[in-house]
Design a protein around this nucleic acid. Structure first.
Length: 485
RNA sequence: GGCUCCAUCGUCUAAUGGUUAGGACACGGGCUUUUCAAGCCUGUAACCGGGGUUCGACUCCCCGUGGAGUCACCA
């Protein structure tokens, strides 16, 4: 059975790249009837950010993706773990790492190192000066077991490093193909820190094995450390999972997306008024495309068509304009009721019938939920405008006044039921124009401007529908008075 | 700099040896039209360069070039 996992470190808000990895994990697991696991990698105690795990889980909920094992958010905001392979938080698995690290030392695959950070710094400086690869010089490898035991017993601070064997590591990356690393390039990296916590390298190997992970999806920044992991899998005699290094999400300058160059937090996208479906569609098709001639996919369609081997190896620049376009597509496809539901958190005025209708009408004119507030204003209160714009380009003031007075009278004859739909209003007005032998422009232009108070706006029929009889008439009277001045 | 990876319109991408190199965003034009938006039609725009392999290369190989990632008691 396929088991994928997302292994975020709780050091901040959920990154957009993490969302993409999560999506691919989810697509793959879901498609193969496998399991998708979340494991929290909190082995760096100094970088922990309170609330980071909660934020991650909230973003999962917001994006409508679900995992099968790992930490879950309870309704009261606390966290509980579900799944048979726990604990799923690494700081609760310290004894496990200790045991396996000791095993590696006993077998001669790893060794204690007493070098100070100062010495290490100097060593690296010297290596850099000589243009050599910076890696540990194995000073402590020459220590005998007895010496090491003695120094540990004396309370000296130490770490454990793996002893990288000679040779090379080869692996078949699911998106990149065959990759080879010579072990001369691989550092005797630290697997246990002096504070008793494992480093990522050790913890990841042990957990992925114990949790029976079959596919490791992660960002491209990890390829160069993959040999370390594989070396350890082999030291333990464990099966090596399939690695898939996903292309990076880039900022417009083609560099790895960072906080400086773009919005990296998933949370920000929701705050900016993007719909979860749009974000999932957009991020989920970055580096992977099910088809060459379609853009809009539901999450289920992505699950069905996902194929790791079709994931691009090259990085992808975030095209925000396309995200806006995609969001608008989803916005326009929303039912009137759903639109209200989704827009409500972004609207600062009470949601009444006028607001509901205005939202529906303006839906084709905004890209993001946050834009509704501004667009709603002209409906809620007539904005100050220059009466001159009431006059159509092919008519004059006298005509404008005449047409507005006609409309005022016409609307007076409309029953409440006429205001039930835009179509009814449009039909009634257009029939009137035809019947009276008038021109659309002469009537519709001043009517629309009088109703909206704007040069550019929705159609007069839509605006009438939103404002209803009384307010509409008020605005017409206001316009007529303004023109007569 | 060492190592590793990557390379199709400005951007996201399709193409898995044979296509007039397709779609989307953005941009331009047109239609529709009372304005805007939406919608429809349409235009500009790409195979990084050079060698091979092959009857035939965007597709395979090599070399350049360019870009990226990584070189911590961080993940």
């Amino acid at each position: 059975m396929i088991r994928t996992r997302l292994a975020p470190s709780p050091t901040g808000k959920m990154h957009i790249g993490t969302l993409r990895t999560a999506l691919f994990d989810y697509f793959l697991a879901k498609q193969q009837n496998g399991k998708f696991i979340i494991r929290i990698e909190d082995t760096d105690q100094e970088r922990l950010v309170p609330g980071a795990v909660e934020n991650l889980l909230e973003m999962f909920t917001a994006a409508n993706i679900t995992h099968d094992e790992g930490p879950f958010l309870r309704d009261d905001g606390t966290i509980e773990e579900r799944g048979a392979y726990g604990p799923y938080v690494q700081s609760n698995r310290l004894d496990i790492y200790k045991k396996y690290a000791d095993e590696l030392v006993e077998k001669g695959f790893a060794y204690p190192c007493f070098c100070t950070v100062e010495r290490l710094d100097e060593m690296r400086k010297a290596q850099t000066a000589l243009k050599q690869t910076t890696k540990y010089d194995r000073k402590c490898l020459s220590l005998t077991a007895a010496e090491a035991r003695e120094r540990i017993a004396a309370g000296e601070s130490y770490v454990i490093r793996i002893k990288v064997p000679e040779g090379k590591t080869e692996f078949d990356d699911a998106v990149r193909g065959h990759v080879v690393f010579d072990h001369r390039e691989v550092d005797d990296c630290i697997i246990m820190k002096s504070d008793g916590f494992p480093t990522y390298f050790l913890a990841m190997v042990i957990d992925d094995h114990l949790m029976e992970i079959t596919h490791v999806l992660r960002g491209e920044e990890w390829v160069s450390s993959t040999p370390k992991s594989i070396i350890m899998f082999k030291m333990f005699g464990w099966d090596v999972p399939i690695f898939a290094h996903l292309p990076l999400i880039l900022s417009p300058d083609k560099k790895k997306l960072s906080k400086r160059t773009g919005d990296t937090a998933v949370e920000i996208y929701f705050e900016h008024g993007y719909l979860a479906e749009a974000l999932v569609n957009f991020i989920g098709t970055l580096g992977f495309n099910p088809s060459g001639d379609r853009e809009i996919f539901t999450i289920d369609e992505l699950v069905t068509s996902f194929d790791l081997n079709k994931v691009n190896a090259g990085g992808a620049v975030l095209n925000m304009e396309k995200l806006d376009w995609m969001n608008k597509q989803y916005l326009m496809a929303l039912s009137a009721e759903d639109l209200v539901l989704r827009a409500t958190p972004f609207v600062t005025v009470p949601i009444d019938d006028t607001v509901k209708r205005a939202l529906f009408v303006e839906r084709t004119r905004v890209s993001r939920l946050t834009e509704f507030n501004d667009v709603l204003k002209p409906y809620l209160a007539l904005q100050e405008y220059n009466p001159a714009i009431l006059v159509w380009k092919k008519a004059d003031v006298t005509d404008a006044i005449a047409q507005l007075e006609r409309m005022l009278a016409l609307i007076e004859t409309f029953s409440e039921s006429t205001f039930e739909s835009v179509e009814l209003l449009e039909t009634a007005i257009k029939e009137y124009i035809t019947r009276e032998g008038l021109q659309n422009g002469n009537v519709l232009w001043p009517l629309r401007v009088a109703l909206s108070g704007q040069e550019k706006s929705a159609t007069p029929f839509e605006t009438l529908w939103v404002l209803k009889k009384e307010t509409s008439q008020e605005r017409l009277r206001h316009a007529i008075a303004a023109l007569k001045k």
